[in-house]
Simulated scan of single mutants.
Amino acid sequence: MVVIAQTGLQVMTSVLAAYAIVFGRFRRPGLILAAYLVTMMIPNEATVVANYLTIRSVGLFDTLIAVFIPFVASAYSIFLLRQTFMSFPTEILEAATIDGAGPMRFLFRFLLPLTKPIIMTVTLVSAIAAWNGYLWPLLVTESPTSRTVQVGVKALFDEADTDFGAGLAGLVVVSIPTIILVIVGQKFLARGLTEGAVK
């Protein structure tokens, strides 16, 4: 649930933000992008306490929402999509506009299908990051029903009578979804990350 919610929301907000920066009617879209990129320079560890206090104050502690809500937007994903949208052929945009396509129709009928590799790359990177999250889920959850699988695997090694066989089996099981995601999406990862590298 955390992976699906975090990945879906992150991709949605990144697509809409990048679309607004590139095709919106802002006077200085570069400043907006710079504001997003500044957040990449702040280590996650520096914002943990502030985010934790916020989650506590709004009553979301020990819930699944608390695990993914700080990650519904990603400056890296926005930057990646913005660079792709910037290289989108203007002829297609002009033809769609003449044809009477509105902003949302252009986004869903033209822009997203033609930039599918980078969308898949952003989705895969977001999903893998959500699946491998450990520190934040550990801090904002207490009950086993709210904790993610990474925290659960670590708990296998924290028991007084540690069963190393069960712990190692847990590590293997936890690694399987990541391996499957990379194998299935490796062509999208390679194509998406090198998109625009060669003209």
Rank of each mutant, 00 (worst) to 15 (best):
V172N: 05
E142K: 14
Q150R: 02
L111A: 12
F110D: 00
P177Y: 11
Q6R: 15
T121C: 01
S87L: 13
Y52I: 07
F23I: 09
Y52E: 04
F68N: 01
R105M: 06
G167L: 14
D158C: 02
A95Y: 01
G185R: 03
A73S: 08
L193R: 03
Q150P: 02
L9W: 01
E195L: 08
F106M: 09
G133E: 15
S146F: 14
L81P: 03
T178W: 06
A34W: 08
G30A: 14
A130E: 07
V173H: 04
P43E: 12
A50G: 01
G133T: 06
T7Q: 09
A66G: 02
L80E: 01
A166D: 06
V58C: 10
T13P: 00
T13W: 03
F71K: 04
Y36A: 07
D99A: 01
L9M: 13
T178I: 14
I78V: 11
I118C: 09
R27A: 14
I180P: 04
K116R: 14
Y76G: 13
F26L: 15
N132L: 04
I21K: 09
G30W: 15
M1Q: 14
M86S: 07
T90W: 00
V15L: 14
S175Q: 08
M104F: 11
R82I: 00
I65G: 00
F79V: 01
F108I: 01
V184A: 10
K116G: 01
L111M: 11
G8H: 10
S126W: 02
I119M: 06
E45A: 14
T7N: 07
K199W: 05
P103H: 07
S146H: 15
I128W: 01
A17K: 09
M86E: 12
A66P: 03
V149W: 14
R28G: 02
L37M: 12
G24S: 12
S175H: 08
F108Y: 09
M1F: 15
R56A: 10
V15R: 13
V38M: 15
